[in-house]
Design a protein around this nucleic acid. Structure first.
Length: 448
DNA sequence: CGGATGGCGC
């Protein structure tokens, strides 16, 4: 029965799995801890953490005690849904129940801390593993390397990787995938390339994840044709069994103005029978919004939501950008305000999109007002405003903003700084231009 | 029976 339940759960057929269990009970087979653990993992993955909990209760009611695997599945579920405190509670609960955590409990907890941007605490978990003399799993190192990369410690991740190799650790394909991704994200595409060669030399065969990662890396460095070549190779090898890579390609095409081609690839997503999840939906939705087909976009959104797809912060940001592009600033503003009441606040990208739209249409005072009322701002917010002010030839205001951005420890693009300085000069404000330049230099010295 | 890697927005 357990084998059957497991394979149904893997295939997301939870109702069928439940039927098998009921049938089993009818012929005298009682579900055991393995059956429940399988169910808990599947419910956490496909339905939600509460669904996982309800199985836990069912299990306890049936007189079966949870074990370490039960808790690991729940902790992983809590991590998936970004519930840090729930992870910690579960870990404590496990200890209280005198269930000894295994390496995977620690791995999962460590991964959870990394995911929440708490690398120090994650590292403490790792030290705990060593202290308690629990033998590590290769995944422990993979999680460490990934966590370090994702939290801006790419250099440390590289050092760890190299020292592990010296100690006889044989990197797996996942290890390379993680490293390549991390290196690319931190702007070290050249090192990523080296690792791509290395993994092949070591006899690994790149998988769909490797291809998608490398392809995105190419796009990041504006090597579009190179990336498309990788995609073609990936398709030839039959590695496009999901929409992941198609989304990357389509959004690159859209961003570079190759609308017709983007349309083509999105067509594949729709006709290939892939499950349209929120990410692929957003990619398609973005096409309609960028083309200014807001009516079609709304229809699509309506249909998707009726079909049970839940929009996320990406959906909202795309919509707001679309509304701005079509000049519907009032509706964009309303949507933004609605967003903050429905829990999508801190959607900085959407707000940035809005001020960008306002700046592009010369509504600088309105943009400034919004910018000042935002509770958080990032370097994009500043860049957008700075560029907008320069375009309106309000160079003094732009330089003031630029300096306050730098004082806040945020860095904006060199080209944006250039625009301000050149602008000041073009107005004959040579003295101010020089002042800004020296302040930028000073900030550089102080920060690095 | 669980647990690590890839896709979308300014």
């Amino acid at each position: 029965m357990n084998v059957c339940v497991a394979s149904l759960c893997k295939a997301k057929q939870l109702e069928k799995a439940e039927i098998v269990i009921v049938d089993g009970i009818r012929i005298g087979l009682q579900p055991d801890v393995v059956t429940y653990n399988t169910l808990i993992a599947a419910y956490c993955r496909f339905v939600g953490i509460d669904a996982g909990y309800s199985i836990l209760h069912r299990m306890k009611d049936a007189g079966i005690n949870p074990d370490v695997i039960t808790y690991n599945a729940l902790i992983a579920g809590a991590t998936r849904y970004s519930l840090l405190s729930k992870c910690l509670d579960l870990f404590d609960e496990m200890l209280e129940m005198r269930i000894l955590p295994d390496i995977w409990s620690y791995n999962t907890l460590m991964n959870c801390f990394f995911k929440f941007g708490k690398p120090d605490e994650a590292y403490r978990v790792f030290q705990d593993i060593l202290l308690k003399n629990i033998s590590v799993h290769s995944a422990t190192f993979n999680i460490l390397i990934n966590g370090l990369c994702m939290n801006g410690y790419t250099e440390n991740a590289l050092m760890l990787f190299r020292s592990l190799k010296c100690h006889g650790f044989i990197p797996q394909l996942v290890t390379y995938n993680i490293l390549i991704h991390g290196l690319c994200k931190s702007g070290r595409g050249n090192v990523a390339r080296e690792f791509l060669n290395e993994l092949v030399e070591l006899g690994h065969i790149p998988n769909a994840i490797t291809y998608t990662t490398v392809m995105k890396c190419c796009f990041r460095y504006r090597q579009f044709e190179e990336g498309l070549k990788i995609f073609a190779e990936m398709r030839n090898k039959g590695y496009t069994y999901d929409a992941f890579a198609y989304c990357t390609v389509a959004s690159m095409l859209l961003k570079t103005g190759r609308i017709t081609e983007a349309n083509e690839y999105l067509g594949y997503i729709i006709t290939s029978g892939f499950t349209i999840d929120i990410v692929s939906f957003n990619t398609i939705f973005n096409l309609y919004c960028k083309e200014g087909q807001l009516d079609n976009a709304y229809t699509l959104l309506y249909e998707a939501e009726n079909g049970g797809l839940e929009s996320d912060k990406y959906t909202h940001a795309i919509l707001i950008d679309g509304l701005c592009r079509t000049g519907n600033f009032q509706e964009a503003q309303q949507q933004l305000n609605r967003m903050s009441v429905t829990g999508f606040d801190s959607n900085l990208v959407a707000w940035n999109s809005f001020i960008n739209g306002l700046c592009k249409t010369g509504q600088l005072d309105y943009a400034t007002h919004i910018f000042e009322s935002m509770d958080t701002r990032d370097s994009v917010s500043y860049s957008t405003m700075v560029r907008g002010l320069c375009q309106a030839r309000r160079f003094r205001a732009a330089s003031k903003l630029l300096l306050s951005c730098i004082r806040g420890g945020m860095n904006i693009l060199k080209s944006d700084k250039r625009i301000v300085i050149d602008g000041l000069r073009s107005c004959g404000l040579t003295h101010e231009a020089r002042k800004v330049q020296s302040k930028i230099q000073m900030a550089k010295l102080l920060h690095y």
